[in-house]
Amino acid sequence: MSAVLTHAPAIGVDGGLALCQEPVRVVDDSSLSDNQQADLRRAGWMAAAQAGDRAAYERVLGESVGLVRAVARRQGVPQDLLDDVVQETLITVHRVRHTYDPARSYHAWLSAIAARRAIDSLRQLGRRDRRELHEPLAVEQHADERQANDAAEQDERAAALREAIASLPPGQREAVEQLGLREHTLAEASALTGRSTGALKVNLHRALKALRNRLHGEH
């Protein structure tokens, strides 16, 4: 069977006619492995996405999630950070989708971006670990009773804060988690939650007010 991957020419809104809209690849795929056929299929979808085909784009992104996770795992990203790497990779893919050449492997292109995002994530983790004092070391260096009491008090306050956040309405909780805890930008949080930046800002404002009231009894 021959695979002819084509997509309709389209007018690009970001600066003119989409170029190179000729058939992407014509190959006899009977001799190809399953992986190669899957790669060809994704290349075709990505080419169509470059021309503005939303359905093809969502399909290729959907299939990319597993690939990105595998790359991130190979790079040594801890399990609890894999989803962050997936999301950051998908956002990067969206931003640089014009750099993909449909005549080449989609897998190689995606893997390179995913590996970069995974390394960034590991570096960020390393920086965070360096900033935070290792627990045994902290006890050794700050063993006096007052500081131990301070730590216990801090734990209590953190638990109260966690409880207060959990009690927020879903929209407000989401805003605090995305903007406050995960430190995403408004634009990132908007893409991740599907809410407008305006709604996120309002929800964050209301959440902070509710948290203040609950923790400090301010009215």
Binding site: G12, D14, G52, L61, Q87, L90, D101, Q178, L181, L192
Partner: peptide
């Protein structure tokens, strides 16, 4: 937070899709 919903992000990116010049 729960594990992020990738499908939600994919829909958001799809909604933002515009043709690009390669």
């Amino acid at each position: 937070a729960d594990a992020p919903n990738h499908q939600l992000l994919i829909h958001a990116l799809g909604a933002d899709l515009a043709p690009v010049r390669r």
